[in-house]
Simulated scan of single mutants.
Amino acid sequence: MSSPISPACARPEPALSRREVMAAGAAGLALAALPASTQAAAPPALAELITRVTEGAVPERSKVSFDIPQLVENGNSVDVAILVESPMTEADHVRWIHVIAEKNPFPDVARFHLTPRSGRADIRATLRLATSQKVAVVASLSSGGYVMADADIVVTLSACIDGG
């Protein structure tokens, strides 16, 4: 059986010169010699993530009921319930609820948009948690303010270990 690539399309890989191999090796040694802090940026701290979500505003620790288990056997499936006290009227309602898990590969876990027609600022969801960490909930109010709650979670079997 013949190859699906015709000989005219097949191009041999160019061989690396001795100079290119030496340069690549030197670059690898130089990278290994750098301090760990410059090799890979550490994930942003939870406070920095919250500041990014609230555009610098400091959220109040009130009005948010955050129900999440403190000990989780499997990080692939963590049930959460979030309730924000709000009349959900046109003049006073929750605009969105943001869930942040600081040690996940992608810390912005979820964002729920709400309107007065939602009736209640009440969310039930299932999250994936990479490891034991602090999880925060930040809610944006129509008045321009923010409220939040957070919880420390211990995960015995981590999820997201492949980076996805």
Rank of each mutant, 00 (worst) to 15 (best):
P14I: 03
E13A: 14
R120C: 01
S65C: 00
P35H: 10
R111N: 12
A159H: 06
S3Y: 07
D122P: 02
R19G: 12
Q70S: 09
I97A: 01
A149M: 06
P43K: 14
V53M: 08
I5V: 15
E85P: 02
P87D: 09
T38F: 10
V72K: 03
L114D: 00
T38V: 13
S140C: 05
D92W: 00
N74W: 06
G145Y: 03
V137F: 09
V138P: 06
T51F: 02
R52E: 04
P43L: 10
R52C: 05
I97K: 06
S132P: 14
D67Y: 01
T89P: 12
K63P: 01
N76G: 11
T126S: 13
S118L: 09
L157N: 13
L31A: 10
A110M: 08
F106T: 07
S142L: 05
I123L: 02
D79M: 06
E13C: 07
G28T: 13
G164W: 04
S140Q: 08
T156C: 11
A125F: 07
G119H: 05
V78A: 11
G25E: 14
G25H: 12
L49C: 02
F106R: 11
V155G: 01
Q70I: 12
A27Y: 12
A47V: 05
A130M: 04
A10C: 08
G144W: 05
L129E: 00
R52K: 07
T89D: 04
G56E: 03
L46H: 11
K63Q: 14
T131I: 15
A57E: 15
L141D: 01
L16F: 08
D122L: 08
F106C: 03
N104H: 05
G119A: 09
G164S: 11
V94T: 02
A42S: 14
Q133C: 04
L29R: 14
E90P: 04
D152N: 11
C160A: 10
T131Y: 12
M88L: 02
S65L: 01
A139F: 10
L127I: 06
T38M: 14
S132Q: 09
H98Y: 03
R18G: 13
M22Y: 11
A57V: 13
D150H: 07
N74Y: 12
Q39P: 10
K103I: 05
G75P: 08
A159G: 05
R52H: 06
D122G: 00
S77M: 09
V109W: 04
G119W: 00
M88G: 02
G163T: 07
V137N: 13
D150A: 07
G119K: 08
E90D: 13
I100H: 03
I123R: 00
V72R: 07
A91K: 15
A57G: 15
M22F: 15
H93C: 01
V78I: 12
N76D: 13
S2K: 07
V58F: 00
F106H: 09
H98T: 11
H98C: 05
K103F: 04
M148H: 02
R128Y: 02
H93M: 06
I153A: 09
A136T: 06
